[in-house]
Design a protein around this nucleic acid. Structure first.
Lengths: 237, 237
DNA sequence: CTAGCAAACCTGTATGACAGGATTCGGGGC
DNA sequence: GCCCCGAATCCTGTCATACAGGTTTGCTAG
């Protein structure tokens, strides 16, 4: 396993190292779990100090392209929504993205997810979905626990689409959603409004369990109509 | 501007530092362009070595949450699709994601983008779109230049949706798309097949220019039907 | 052949140093 | 009083070295 010396994109040595390490992974067809050369070895091959290799590793680890652990060599990582979630939170925090925009994207994507999940869900997923919908209803007095059920519900659904990219995107909204969820819930001030929210989840779960893609998609659409309305009531722009 | 000392998520000092810096940005409402404390200053406040602060900075810079430059202080960054693009490439490279899955997501999202763009595009965007469609037709003999026009076409459209999250997601497919685009193009072996591809872009541009959301969405749907068929012909799973 | 242990390897962090690039601030000219 | 310029200062990028743990490897003893 050797590394070539093409200069990286920018003039920086770290940028160069990141490029070289990425190329090394690609050229050697490294798969998740495979081990990379040690920092010292890479430093030698790239003719830079260990500092530079370490910073390059940190960059790749931040994107969960590789995984670092003390004492162990760096390994190729499984893709994960964590970094994307942080990026989204940053976007919202710095007012480059607003919550309504995220909900528009979520509606678009989750309607498709519902369709696919209705066609592809396993029996276990159908049951897990029903359980999370029931969990929502059961914790109606404890918003802090409700948000966990809501997040889990949508995560299971995304997984059931059998397309990891959907799961990734939904996961990337996880941080933002968990921070704003309570606002939406509080804005549903009447028992009727709250009941609608609970029923919508149950409808989605039922349609997916029944394997009815149109009904699942329609229920998801209603769910987002209702949620977006709640957010508007709350004045979240 | 000070930093508290809550321990980070994992035991690592770098993880702690990343958390503290993130919190510092949030608590002080730092906006893109604003400067962060210097490495030495943070090292002092967090009671860690500059090494740790630097690695934390690298992590945040990898996600484009902050921006680093020689001699200058780190600044809060504008959100950017670069890291997401690298993550997607990694996912495809390691066979955790396949091209068809990406195309399913793209179809879902770009149909919505077409709808929004038809409603919200500026005059300049309508013209730029037409120009890129024309560029595609003009460079039909040079796939390397064609892919640039295709990427630009979809990027302009995404921007015209006036929802940066759509632009972000489309951008995250940029790397993968540019690497597989040529395969799809080559698989369109007849002049008719190639003409269909060109016409579809022109139809989208025309519908968006006319401000007809249904037509734009339908044209986009046809575009993806055609593209996905081309990829299937090419045997890309 | 296996279990266990020691050596070798490896990463996380700290310290100190220094070469440029960037910022700042004071002074001089107008 | 204001603007421009240069020097002092600050700051980042990189290197070398050191050492405390954690991990892997390989040898040895039973």
């Amino acid at each position: 396993m050797t590394v070539d010396e093409r200069p990286g994109p920018d003039g920086s040595l770290v940028g160069h190292a990141v490029g070289s390490i990425t190329r090394l992974m690609r050229d050697n067809d490294l798969m998740p779990g495979d081990r990379l050369p040690s920092e010292a070895e890479l430093a030698r091959q790239l003719q830079v100090s260990r500092t530079v290799v370490r910073e390059a590793f940190r960059s790749l680890a931040a994107m969960r392209i590789i995984e670092l652990a003390t004492g162990r060599r760096a390994t190729v990582a499984r893709i994960d929504h964590g970094p994307m979630s942080l990026m989204m939170e940053h976007g919202v925090q710095t007012e480059q993205i607003n919550i309504q925009q995220i909900y528009d994207v979520r509606r678009t994507i989750e309607m498709r997810i519902a369709t696919l999940a209705a066609l592809r869900r396993t029996e276990a997923e159908a049951q897990a979905l029903a359980a999370e919908a029931a969990g929502l209803r059961a914790t109606v007095e404890d918003p802090a626990r409700m948000v966990g059920h809501d997040l889990a519900f949508h995560a299971i659904l995304a997984d059931a689409s059998r397309n990891p990219v959907y799961a990734l995107i939904i996961g990337s909204f996880r941080g933002v959603t968990s921070e704003t969820w309570a606002i939406g819930w509080r804005s549903r001030s009447t028992p009727e409004a709250r009941e609608r929210m609970l029923v919508n989840h149950e409808r989605i779960a039922a349609a997916v369990a029944k394997g009815d893609p149109e009904a699942a998609s329609a229920a998801m659409s209603d769910h987002f109509d209702e949620s977006v309305r709640a957010l508007i009531v709350a004045g979240l722009s």
